[in-house]
Design a protein around this nucleic acid. Structure first.
Lengths: 339, 339
DNA sequence: GTGAAAGCGCTAACAG
DNA sequence: CTGTTAGCGCTTTCAC
């Protein structure tokens, strides 16, 4: 066993001629220490290059100052943007983040939760496409602060930060209707996900209903996967359904749709309009660029983490389910450039 | 202080009628336990829903089974891809990852290192654009296993996983020369970074020299920043230098260059060829898509993590500085579609 | 304002 | 194969 820790609080105490308790106090910025004692200790701390051992601290205090972050995939721009917000705020409050990729697979999520519990994290930020019952149960039995970021909880039980997906899609689809589209496809990787089924599709239907356009099930298109390639493969089905526009639930998918259409001679937006949902950097990069619902990605993560710090301090949350505001940004993939 | 841990190893021992040591043994899969004793303990573990406290374990064993990962920015597709490889292998070896964003800022890197040291991580994966002397010193004084991923150490002292950037650029620039380009710009966010200065630019110069094309300093173009917008702003300088092609050191930058050129009527690749370096998903998404050096991003992270597990187990590394193989992928941003 | 002492929950010799 | 016994390095009452 390699000896990692050379200088301990005990060494500092001895060298400074005080007790461990006193060293602990100055290291923890406790007020009840006489200024000169404090300086004396600090001098020794510096001379010995003492660095407190957080593991021992954690065991004694039952706080690890680390929070678990479960993310479907860091490689996904949407979630990565949230993760950045989370980490920045965590750092601000002196927490560290243990990041775990789950692929949105509830088995892996549960697995991750358990190791995180073992690690005694002080709290949890949970990102997922779908909160499974098993996960919810796991979360409830362990009495640990949790907040969902960019992830809906149909039951609204857990604290969360999102935008109003239903209203956002409603507004966006309205735009599509305004430019004359009647056969508007709704495209998602998985239609059964709560965020789609209970929110986005509702918004989509609301917009159609509002315009008196009949809802057609055939226009709900499922890609099975959320990446660029999956989107690229959707052209046939879109054409087959004679859709003239698509509301896509994720940017990579939308990029695939646009490129596939364009590559095969279908002009976007003239012959086909497409709008997307996540406002990641991809939206600016594609050509035509993607008109999109805009959402404060970084802030969703940041606010979630801020809420978590409050929960960890046993403070009361003013709002349990925060909805940050969204917008609509018209880019080149739609006809109506003005919003 | 909320009491987090209800059932401890002591409770299990008492209930099972054995000693703590025995419980510890079965929980740690130690062989020296009689099968029936083991089952008896396991039954109690299950009944009481006992879960070992990793913090206590860490204090007693001096191993936390967590490694620190320093990343410039999770939001960067290149590093995010490595991070995914790192996390997967870490999970495979039962380690967790503490992820910290540094923005490639050495102040933040040092800050991060210190908190990671305090947390008693068992090892470190370091990703950075430039290994500063301060950081190197910090890394050396703390005698902790470290491996660099997708990050060069000019001194070749620290274990690392990369591709041969110099050869890759050499090969890629050769392609550009083969299609008749003589004024080839080299574009990077920061020309002084070791990876650019000591490797990529060398490869660039090698290729020029090999073809008897004089090197011109004016064709070394610095974007100051590595994002899409920065790339977009480069068009003027490229045109001003009468460049007919550009070897770009990062994909977002390259996407910006291509879009800016295209948006302003300069045809890519007919009037201007561009190649990029990182092989992120962006390369397929832009139109024209980006010809690029290909590199096994996920594997760079995965191999780095695998090396780290060996170091943490005090095993010897067969190679200290691993170079994974690269390739060249011709897409739409270059004339020569075949390689 | 400071010290003494008792753990936090677990691992790791060392016996037996 | 199993139990005993020290700690690991720090925080936290509780006295003084």
């Amino acid at each position: 066993m390699r000896k990692k820790q050379s200088v301990t609080i005990y060494d500092v105490a001895r060298e400074a001629g005080v007790s461990m308790a006193t060293v602990s106090r100055v290291v923890n910025h406790n007020h009840n220490v006489r200024p000169d004692t404090k300086e004396k200790v600090l001098a020794v701390v510096k001379r010995l290059n003492y660095r407190p051992n957080d593991v021992a601290r954690g065991l004694a205090s039952k706080k690890t100052t680390t929070v678990g972050v479960i993310i479907p995939n860091v490689t996904n721009d949407y979630f990565a943007a949230l993760a950045r917000g989370i980490d920045d705020i965590a750092e601000m409050y002196e927490y560290n983040i243990i990041l775990t990729n789950s692929d949105g697979n509830s088995q892996k999520e549960i697995q991750a939760l358990n190791t995180l519990f073992s690690k005694q994290v002080d709290g949890l930020i949970f990102m997922t496409n779908q909160l499974s019952e098993m996960v919810r149960k796991e979360l409830q039995t362990e009495h640990l602060p949790v907040v969902l970021a960019g992830s809906v909880d149909a039951e609204q039980q857990l604290p969360s930060v999102n935008i109003d997906y239903q209203k956002a899609v409603y507004a966006q689809v309205n735009q599509l209707i305004a430019t004359g589209n009647e056969r508007i496809a709704f495209v998602a990787d998985d239609l059964e996900l709560a965020i789609n089924k209970s929110f986005r599709i509702q918004g989509y239907r609301d917009a159609l209903a509002h315009a008196g356009i009949p809802f057609r099930k055939e226009l709900l298109i499922e890609a099975r996967d959320g990446n660029y390639q999956a989107g690229y493969r959707l052209r046939h089905r879109l054409v087959q359904q004679q859709a003239t526009a698509a509301m896509v639930s994720n940017d990579e998918l939308a990029a695939g749709v646009v490129n596939s259409l364009t590559d095969h001679g279908i002009q976007v937006p003239d012959q086909f309009e497409v709008v997307t949902s996540n406002d990641t950097k991809l939206t600016e990069i594609t050509r035509p660029s993607l008109s999109s619902i805009t959402q404060p990605l970084y802030d969703i993560g940041a606010v979630a983490m801020r809420m978590l710090t409050k929960l960890m301090d046993n403070e009361q949350l003013t709002t349990n389910n925060v909805l940050l505001s969204f917008g609509l940004k018209a880019r080149q993939s739609t006809k109506s450039r003005e919003v």
